[in-house]
Design a protein around this nucleic acid. Sequence first.
DNA 1: AAACTGACCAACCGCTTCCTG
DNA 2: TCAGGAAGCGGTTGGTCAGTT
Length: 310
Amino acid sequence: MGRSPCCDKMGLKKGPWTSEEDQKLLAYIDEHGHGSWRSLPEKAGLHRCGKSCRLRWTNYLRPDIKRGKFNLQEEQTIIQLHALLGNRWSAIATHLPKRTDNEIKNYWNTHLKKRLVKMGIDPVTHKPKNETPLSTLGGLSKNAATLSHMAQWESARLEAEARLARESKLLHYQTKVSSSHHEHLNIISSDQQKQQQLDSPTSTVSFSEGKTEFVGSSSTCLNMIKETENDWISSTIHEFEGVEEGLTGLLLGGGGSLGPSFSADKNETAGDSSGGGGGECNNYYEDNKNYLESIFSFVDPSPSDSTPMF
DNA sequence: AAACTGACCAACCGCTTCCTG
DNA sequence: TCAGGAAGCGGTTGGTCAGTT
């Protein structure tokens, strides 16, 4: 399977986008939707490859993009999801509405990863680099197994979401076609198609208030996705109940009320402040304690408005 | 003021996955 | 079932800017 040759064409512009180019792209997509990215540049009068246009649109021009600094809750979500999913930025991005995978990836690489390293936590495994003293307390190996299990569930769940979203769209389409109001529906269909094209092309699932919702109206699909989610959540909760005991012991019975927030950014940041001041050993364990709590609070069944659930 | 350094992030590259005929 | 094209994705690069020497 050869690579797409679109970017190899001579005479195509590369590098930063000008405001005129942005305007052209915006105007074209606003009017026609993006349709085929490959043919778009020519139609829009841009001397760019389709890939470049798609990237510019998805990462910068899309109207549903939230720009600016990440807040504490978003940071927390990224870290928690990264612990579960690894470098699957697009999957992580689906849980952070209005943020692009590229933005999340950049933020992780420039901020969060460094912060974890400073805390003595391996940003790849999300385990303390010096695991020996903690693991000997018996909690972590179990925790790691649980995280692994959670990751598997999440993986399967994401696949199911994507599949069901496709099926839902298909069902929606078929329903329309079978209807007697063809002309009317065709109008709706084209409007929806336009809207859909204006929506995030990287996301097969749209989110509202942290809940998953589907475009289609199929109750079957909704039930299926609910089942999938419930399976996953109940499974992880079940696992969590067991882990919590180990974790409690692991946390040296430390008071408990650390709050749900990830400690590192309380004063931009604990990561930065960890370098200064004494009691580094205490800070190390305190940070890890907070960190691990934040990871496991992600699957805590108790409702929390600070932690977006699926 | 100039040179240097590091942080940040938009954009590119190339591989993988999906879709269609 | 398979091949080829298109889109998606993650890793990486390179330009810009602010802070430091």
